[in-house]
Design a protein around this nucleic acid. Sequence first.
DNA 1: AACTCGGGGGT
DNA 2: ACCCCAGAGTT
Length: 371
Amino acid sequence: MDWQSDNKPNEVTVQDTFAPVLEAWYERHKRNLPWRHTRDPYAIWLSEVILQQTRVAQGLPYYERFLNTYPHVRAMAEADERDILRLWQGLGYYSRARNMHQTARQITTERAGKFPDTYQSLLQLKGIGAYTAAAIASFAFGERVAVVDGNVYRVLARVFGISEDITTTQARKTFATLAQQLIQAANDPATYNQAIMEFGAIQCTPVAPDCLLCPVHAHCVAFQTGRQHLLPVKSKKAAVRERFFTYIVLTRLHPDQGLQLAMRERTDRDVWQNLYDFYLIETDEPKESLRELSLPENLSFILPISVAQGHPVKLVQLLSHQRIRGWFYQLIVPYEASERLPDGFSWFTPAAAEQLPKPVLITNYLQNQLG
DNA sequence: AACTCGGGGGT
DNA sequence: ACCCCAGAGTT
């Protein structure tokens, strides 16, 4: 007997008991997380943006640093985007930080710092999609709107035996509709939303779910049919793209400030937008030396008069969708010629470079070279 | 609907 | 290796 079986009129169905059971489970098992002790929509919004596609353990220190640095939305609005990105450094998906900053400014200037307080109005803001709007609306304002995140897909797919491919638009509708039905029976919408996500994170885990101690296993289609490991169904992703980055690390010796590095902001519509790196030549094949490269015009002046420093440093950065192999050549530019840098580049001391937002690959290189 | 956007942790 | 993570924006 599963929870999809026929509902007779005037009979308590499992759809009525699912939410209260999870709420009860939550009160016994919930973790103590800082954003669960506030109803400040700003703090909740911040936590939700940080936690998009990010594990709690990874996001937690960022949440604390952001809230300390920018205690309210106006403080974030008044910050420089560069400092926001620097604080975000290492979290990935940097458009989250840019959109968050834009939304902070909009709320500060157009709404006098007051957050929208409904699901629909929250949805209008940059960086707030269906999940985040539901999370803020329920946690901060008590609206009865169901969150649907990766945990919810997994829990509902298993308990209700739904084998639709969760990457399809049709399946998203199926799960959203079911989730919205289930939250109707919740004692408290905010608690229920927290509960189902916590349940997915702790009990109904992707691998080796703890079914024997699960409070709903008697009604779980997946458990009753031994299909826990087969649900949810998710089509495979595209292969990882291989990229080859040759970095020309131009350096000079400033008479007063010592060593400096030439860096620039990445502005292309590509990975690491608005982060800083070095002069980059990308090739579609690995290049074993500088001689194999056809060097661009804007290096033709500076390169021949510069002095290469030994062997290149080789580092690999693995992203979810790309594998970037970086070869770093350090060159020392004669100080007399060092003002003629390619467009967009400026000189930074190591201390100044430290303050710039950078990809992890670049941070690792600087760490290796400068200690 | 398909693609793109990071980085880290678990198995 | 592969999978997943309190997803969203763009094409």
